[in-house]
Write a protein that binds this DNA or RNA. Structure first.
Lengths: 336, 336
DNA sequence: CTGAAAGCGCTTACAG
DNA sequence: CTGAAAGCGCTTACAG
């Protein structure tokens, strides 16, 4: 038995193909139809075992209920699995709730032609530490709906996004340290200038200034951290370390290793806070810091994208920041 | 600036839309084309930022470079994350290597109309413990390329699949126990009849019979396991426990908890083997058993699907089983 | 109330 | 060598 088309049903039911389309489409346009015709069509469709061809309906309807997901690294990476997985889980959950399917664009690079391909969906989510400005600018110019996961400042702030409020969350951590009596703090951050890093630093600096706390900011990829570094900081009177936590967790891991190497106890010898959450499976005490609401980010991004694709439900805010709940943890000591 | 079509390129290049299609399609049919025309078209396409519409090409050519991934539970689930993630990572890696994008069909159920939607792609991978026979039979009947990840016996074995050779791997574990001097073994398996469970049991039974080992097979979802159960087995002379490991790890976790509750030491008081790999992050010794080559399963499944979509590269084998490498582990004691 | 036409953007025969 | 036509299976205006 070959493919059954609407035309076949039309022949059997003795109506036009267009009428079949109207009947099977649930008569969305409110066309007047005789009940007799409707039933004849439905019966013929049932009898012939009709299966609508989603590809054709898509071409004709200009909408395909498909949302794209573009990650600049593999979507299922090894080194940032902990960071991406909950986001993607949130994306999937919300997409399913909205009845949308997902296209994962398997990007090995940010090549512009790969980025253009995203237009095959109704709209696309982007996920990554940096923005391939040219490709994204093209999409924006074409009026193609996109949403970045993570706050973006590129292209004059015109990129719609759903991000985390790292500024407030980071400031809160510093305030917590100040309240616990810490006055000399060392802040280790990623070397590159992604907004997520810049936001944290802004929050940290602002809170440190407000609390009159002495702060040293260090950019590092973690490779240069070892036991002697730690000893040196302690000799310098530092009582607390604040570490940025990003996708890969590289800096946190390096710091944790260096602390072990130096044989210092946390928080006995030095307090430790992480601006984010260390990767799951890290042994030891619960590190003080804050939660990144990754799953919620994924869900909110899908909702925003869906509203951009399907306008009319009011003007959505193109830039949202979600709150990062504080994690008390066990690694901040209260000083006398 | 709206969507750029071949007709737009044609206008700019001064040729017909059909010629544009031929040029951009890489001239598959071997039409004679002047190099000058070819370059003019290519240049215009580049300049206008042309992106082929995969929906249209699919309608016209019945091909769109999209592979579907259908999971019967969320693709990014919490309880089987460890099981699915490496598979999906393999799927993504191979798809990227082949230049295919992925459509994730966010299925909350196995409703036939959801399954039909997969026909939007050139072919589709299916992943799940059971087969929704009706929907899959329809696809098969329609000649739609599908590949199951995991061995399938349903529909008279007509479902193409790439699975793991659980029979051999499970038998090997039993043989290992026999060699270590064990003669009374308790085997805890999942209660339902998925092929992955049946295969393990076959391997276990065959090897037990061959080794003259006394075997008791117990079906359990883990809820009824506790300390007293364990004590009871030991009193019965059991020296080794063999536990099935499936997506959720439910039975393994329950067993591990029961062992702890009974206060028995492993492998001091009793040996333990798992037919698979316990979820990552499990504390304690490395459990003896075997590795499930999940990432390789994903890759192989994509390759098979691609060859079904794109025939001509020889007749691929529709049923492949990958070897599961043994894991020696630390939980099998050698008896005197 | 219902049919026939146009068209979504492309590919693949088929004429020149 | 290149253009024009037909058509993939559908939806959505638009005529009757």
């Amino acid at each position: 038995m070959g493919k059954v088309r609407q035309a076949d049903i039309a022949r059997v039911a003795g109506v036009s193909q267009a009428t079949v389309s109207v009947v099977l489409g649930g008569n969305r346009t409110g066309v007047r139809l005789s009940e007799r015709t409707r039933l004849r069509v439905l019966e013929a469709a049932e009898q012939l075992g009709y299966v609508p061809d989603p590809v054709s309906s898509r071409l004709a309807a200009t909408r395909n209920n498909l949302l794209g997901v573009y990650t600049f690294t593999p979507a299922f990476p090894v080194d940032v699995a902990d960071a991406y997985y909950p986001i993607l889980a949130g994306v999937e959950a919300e997409a399913a709730a909205l009845g949308k399917d997902l296209i994962m664009f398997t990007a090995s690079s940010a090549a512009p032609d790969r980025i253009r391909r995203t237009r095959l969906a109704d709209g696309c989510l982007f996920l990554g530490r940096h923005v391939p400005v040219d490709g994204i600018a093209d999409l924006l110019a074409a009026g193609f709906p996109i949403v970045y996961i993570g706050r973006r400042t590129e292209l004059g702030g015109r990129i719609p996004h759903v991000g985390a409020d790292y500024v407030s969350a980071s400031a809160e951590v510093i305030t917590r340290l100040a309240r616990a009596g810490h006055t000399r703090v060392r802040y280790l951050r990623e070397p590159d200038d992604a907004p997520s890093s810049g936001d944290r630093e802004r929050g940290v600096r602002a809170a440190a200034a407000a609390a009159g706390l002495s702060l040293v900011v260090v950019r590092t990829d973690g490779a240069d951290l070892d036991g002697p570094s730690v000893r040196c900081w302690l000799d310098d009177g530092v009582t607390a370390l604040v570490v940025e936590e990003t996708d890969t967790g590289a800096v946190f891991h390096a710091t944790w290793r260096a602390l072990g190497e130096a044989g210092v106890s946390v928080p006995g010898d030095v307090s430790l806070a992480v601006l984010g959450r260390p990767p799951a499976g890290t042994a030891g005490p619960v590190i003080s810091g804050f939660e990144v609401p990754r799953r919620a980010l994924g869900r909110a991004a899908v909702r925003l994208l869906a509203s951009l694709v399907e306008p009319g439900s009011g003007e959505p805010s193109l830039h949202r920041l979600l709150t990062c709940p504080p994690v008390a943890g066990e690694t901040i000591a209260t000083l006398a």
